[in-house]
Amino acid sequence: MTLLQTLGLTYPIIQAPMAGATTPELAATVSNFGGLGSLGAGMTTPDALSNQINTMKTLTDRPFMINLMVLSEHDCTTLDSAVPAWLSQYYQEKDIDIDLPKRPAQNFAEQLQVLYDNPVPVASFTFGIISAEHVQRLQQLGTCVIGTANHPLEAQAWAEVGADAVCLQGMEAGGHRGGWLAQGVADPLGLLTLIGQTRACTDIPLIAAGGIMTGQDIKAIQTAGAQLAQVGTAFLTTDKCAINDSYKQALLDASHGKRSTETRLTRLFSGKPARALINDYLRDFTAFDDTDTLPPYPQLNAMTKTMRAEAVQRKDAEYQSLWAGQGVALVKQESTIELLERLVQGL
Rank of each mutant, 00 (worst) to 15 (best):
T2D: 15
L4H: 02
L4E: 05
L7I: 04
G8N: 01
T10M: 06
I13T: 02
A16V: 02
P17A: 13
M18P: 09
G20Q: 10
A21H: 10
P24E: 02
A27M: 08
T29G: 12
S31K: 03
N32K: 03
G37S: 04
S38F: 03
L39Y: 10
L39R: 08
G40E: 06
T45I: 08
D47E: 15
A48F: 07
L49P: 13
S50Q: 14
N51A: 15
I53P: 12
K57V: 02
T58P: 01
T60E: 12
R62A: 12
P63Y: 03
P63G: 03
F64I: 11
F64S: 09
L71F: 06
L71K: 06
H74M: 06
D75W: 01
T77V: 02
T77A: 10
T78L: 08
P84Y: 09
P84A: 08
Y90R: 13
D95S: 15
D97I: 11
I98D: 04
K102V: 00
R103W: 00
Q111T: 13
L112E: 13
Q113V: 04
L115N: 10
P119N: 12
P119L: 14
S124A: 08
I129C: 11
A132D: 08
E133C: 08
V135R: 05
Q136R: 15
T143I: 11
T148A: 15
T148G: 13
P152W: 11
E154I: 13
Q156G: 03
Q156K: 15
Q156C: 08
A159H: 15
A159P: 02
A159T: 02
E160L: 14
V161W: 12
A163N: 10
A165F: 14
Q169E: 12
G170C: 11
G174M: 10
G175L: 04
H176P: 09
G179D: 12
A182P: 10
A186Q: 14
A186C: 01
L194D: 12
I195N: 06
I195P: 03
G196P: 07
T202L: 14
D203V: 04
P205D: 13
G211C: 03
I212E: 06
G215M: 05
G215S: 13
G215I: 00
I221T: 07
Q222V: 01
A224I: 06
G225T: 05
A226K: 09
T233H: 07
F235Y: 10
F235W: 05
A242W: 03
D245A: 15
S255L: 04
E262L: 05
R267T: 09
R267V: 05
S270G: 14
A274L: 08
I278E: 02
N279K: 06
D280R: 14
D280T: 11
Y281T: 03
Y281A: 02
D289M: 07
D289T: 06
D290P: 01
T293M: 07
T293V: 14
L294E: 09
P295H: 08
Y297H: 09
L300H: 03
L300K: 00
L300V: 01
K305A: 15
T306F: 12
R308H: 05
A309H: 10
V312P: 01
Q313P: 00
R314H: 11
A317K: 11
Y319D: 04
S321K: 00
L322H: 09
W323Q: 04
L330P: 00
K332A: 07
Q333Y: 00
T336E: 07
E338I: 02
R342T: 05
L347N: 11
